[in-house]
Design a protein around this nucleic acid. Sequence first.
DNA 1: AATGAATGAGGCTTCATTCAT
DNA 2: TATGAATGAAGCCTCATTCAT
Lengths: 189, 189, 189, 189
Amino acid sequence: MAQETKARIRKAAIEVIAEEGFFNTRMQDIADRAQLAVGTIYNYFSSKDEVLSYIFKYEIQRRMKSISELKEQKLSTRRFLKKFLDRHFLTLRENPNLGRVLVREKEFSRAKDNNEIKENMNSLIKMLEDIFVEGINKAEIKDINAHLMAVYFFGSMQGIIEFALTEPEIEMLVDGPDFIIKRIEHIFK
Amino acid sequence: MAQETKARIRKAAIEVIAEEGFFNTRMQDIADRAQLAVGTIYNYFSSKDEVLSYIFKYEIQRRMKSISELKEQKLSTRRFLKKFLDRHFLTLRENPNLGRVLVREKEFSRAKDNNEIKENMNSLIKMLEDIFVEGINKAEIKDINAHLMAVYFFGSMQGIIEFALTEPEIEMLVDGPDFIIKRIEHIFK
Amino acid sequence: MAQETKARIRKAAIEVIAEEGFFNTRMQDIADRAQLAVGTIYNYFSSKDEVLSYIFKYEIQRRMKSISELKEQKLSTRRFLKKFLDRHFLTLRENPNLGRVLVREKEFSRAKDNNEIKENMNSLIKMLEDIFVEGINKAEIKDINAHLMAVYFFGSMQGIIEFALTEPEIEMLVDGPDFIIKRIEHIFK
Amino acid sequence: MAQETKARIRKAAIEVIAEEGFFNTRMQDIADRAQLAVGTIYNYFSSKDEVLSYIFKYEIQRRMKSISELKEQKLSTRRFLKKFLDRHFLTLRENPNLGRVLVREKEFSRAKDNNEIKENMNSLIKMLEDIFVEGINKAEIKDINAHLMAVYFFGSMQGIIEFALTEPEIEMLVDGPDFIIKRIEHIFK
DNA sequence: AATGAATGAGGCTTCATTCAT
DNA sequence: TATGAATGAAGCCTCATTCAT
């Protein structure tokens, strides 16, 4: 039924966009991959842009939920960050195509009124900033610029992911979390 | 003369692409900004893709040259990295549009045979890796995974730049170099 | 039962087509207005064109029947024309949407094999021509070109209707019949 | 040069639209008739709708100019109307396709924000109304409802034209002006 | 008899590229 | 060398129609 088809389109789109890039992907390509007619996609999405937006919204919301659960576990800042990285990198290892789309296509159609994706990314960074602020307040980490730290953390994470997803380096995703945590070890008191 | 016109096109392209994104930029837009006719662009570039490639090639080569000069100064690894960051961040502060293009459009037309840009980016990372290897050999820094470190360093740098170039946070580029160096302080012996 | 549904579709179609025009009306719009599923329409009509054809056929036949009744009353030509105008203009005042469809959509799909509507319109003009011929024969009106007169009469009638149905001038339909009759007063002996 | 091409497109569009109707005409058809590429049309018009709008604007402006000239001749109301009809009917006899487009396609895309055509038609009716008002003031014609008279006059004119342009009746355009004038003879004092 | 998700042909429009001036 | 009108392939999207339930 309805939601099945929408999910099928989402998954097909992730695959094709990961392979070809968003701008090089034609609606027909997505339809072919999903084994549907083009018209069917338009029964679920109003435009090509909306397909990509939906992928981001869907995945970021899953991550936000996962983070909320993590927060409820009242972990130390270090363990929280570690678990967050573990989960995120594991998801990407299991679905590298999704990762490719998420890191590569975030800049699409900036010129249009599609700030939704940007906002979703920023909400993730904001969440990281909150974690650092909290860590500082709980005297678990040193008094650093939490905002800059969040951007730095997110950037290094994205950088590794982006590089790792370049096919032959996927194993970098295995070592990533530990490496990152070790790099910021010095901010913990 | 010839080179003047080519440079004018390059600069116009950087401006427009920074504002609209590569895929949303039409050759006509570049021509308008350069106050030239579209046809003229094709006297200097064989295609739209080549305009972007040229921007990357031109800028990366400038950076590589700047790095070569730096290498000849026989600086310590720490001072080398610091100077590299300073120069890079300063350039971007002086020409944020260029930065926007470099960080955002690197993924363009992956599906096509346009690996040139990718190779240029990778040569920068390779260069960083060399620096870390050299630092390890000279016993200036600890024995870490140089490749992963280069990717991490580059990623965090790009992350800050990307975020900083989102208009209202340009000042992040001022604090960036010191922040990054402090973050990796622990790898120095 | 069956005929109820078909009438519901006809009425819904008149409303939507009056508002949006035939070519801007989608089958889905008609279905929505009739509170039915699109598929249901196809149980009663074989195509979108047929829906419009049916509206014309249905209404013109009603008018022809009304005219036949009028003819049986053996009225003078003047009184016949007056009663015909009165009835017609009254119907349109009661259902302006129907009028809008009848005057505006008569030209649709000329290029296709859909002459049915055209024929229906022409049969109305032919009927008017008969009335004028008869009037001449009965020496009630002067010897004019009956065919041209019919076209003229029909055109002026349509013109007023078309203009009147432009929302704010509906009251023109009230004065219309008398005005038209007065205009052709001179043809009566 | 530029204006030549635009005129070529306008003329080709009139022909094809007269034959097929606006909605059944594809941009490709217009391009074929004009012996141009589709893309070329878009160098002169921003959309298909605009092509039709332009035809109306262009022709109505010509008529308005022709009317202004007529007004300067200080003719009696009767002679003015006669000359106006003569000119108009002659133009249509010389270019029946133009007439077909003007009478048939005036209702197109009402649902969109394309009131331009409507306004152009109304300006013609308004002009006629002015003529009648002036005639009343100059005591050349009786005291009738000038607005209704203008609508009536315009409608009957359109009706004859519409019917006449149905191929086999073109000669109706020859008798039209005199017939119409005779019909309204009684309004002159 | 009613439903509405799926279909896919077809139209409008865009825009990189060419080429005659 | 510069120009910009002309080109036409290609993509997005619409919507009448079908058909399994």
